[in-house]
């Protein structure tokens, strides 16, 4: 069994319905579904390589509802890296990330050493409310990384996770284990993953 201590814990936050679960499921299982089932809290595991050995990437998919503030605090304190998701079709969803970012800041103290990725999901949608440059501006202000994704079309999903791992300077992590495929990656993505190993 994978050891707790060996886990690299990534937590996904964001308003309800922005596609947190869809991103995680696309990444872990390679699937996508159109139906919307609100999440309470689910975890997933994936084996990755870390400093030339293997470790487990543990992803916590959280709830977008505000019913459980205590859970949020606990996930932040346990998390190593964070994905903050909004939907490009909703300005409101970007607004809702602000208190979450503030909470990460409050609990973690210095956020600059902590990998955080701001993600504008549903990039396949045409009814855009948040421009790419607005997302970038927010990321600059927060001193975190930024990416637009689509869980539906599988755009930038694996990249999102690999980039996030790359942001951690204390460890050298890769989604690939000894060049073998991990998860459901296309060949192109696999190559990209390899390139990013420093």
């Amino acid at each position: 069994m994978p050891e707790q201590s060996n886990d690299y814990r990534v937590v996904v936050f964001g308003a309800g319905g922005v596609g947190k679960s869809s991103l995680v499921l696309r990444f872990v299982k390679g699937t996508f579904r159109d139906t919307y089932i609100p999440t309470v809290e689910d975890t997933y595991r994936q084996v990755i390589s870390c400093d030339k050995s293997v470790c487990t990437l543990q992803i916590t998919d959280t709830t977008g509802s505000h019913q459980f503030p205590a859970m949020q605090r606990l996930s932040i304190s346990k998390g190593h890296a964070f994905i903050l998701v909004y939907s490009i079709t909703s300005k409101q969803s970007l607004e809702e990330l602000k208190p979450i970012y503030q909470q990460v800041l409050a609990i973690k103290g210095n956020v600059e050493a902590i990998p955080i990725m701001l993600v504008g999901n549903k990039s396949d949608e045409t009814l855009r409310e948040v421009e790419t440059k607005d997302g970038e501006a927010q990321a600059n202000q927060w001193k975190c990384a930024f990416m637009e994704t689509s869980a539906k079309t599988n755009h930038n999903v694996t990249e999102l996770f690999q980039e996030l791992l790359n942001l951690d300077k204390k460890r050298n992590m890769s989604l690939n284990i000894d060049g073998k495929r991990s998860g459901k990656q296309s060949r192109a993505e696999r190559l990209k993953g390899k390139c990013s190993v420093m």
Binding site: M1, P2, I37, T39, V40, E41, D42, T43, Y44, R45, Q58
Partner: peptide
């Protein structure tokens, strides 16, 4: 594999109903 999923069921839910909810999730 020690991952977990959180499901929402009625307090009086039966084992069968819990399994169905998990399988769905």
């Amino acid at each position: 594999d020690h991952t977990y999923t959180t499901i929402r069921v009625a307090v009086a839910a039966t084992g069968r109903e819990v399994i169905a909810a998990v399988a769905d999730k």
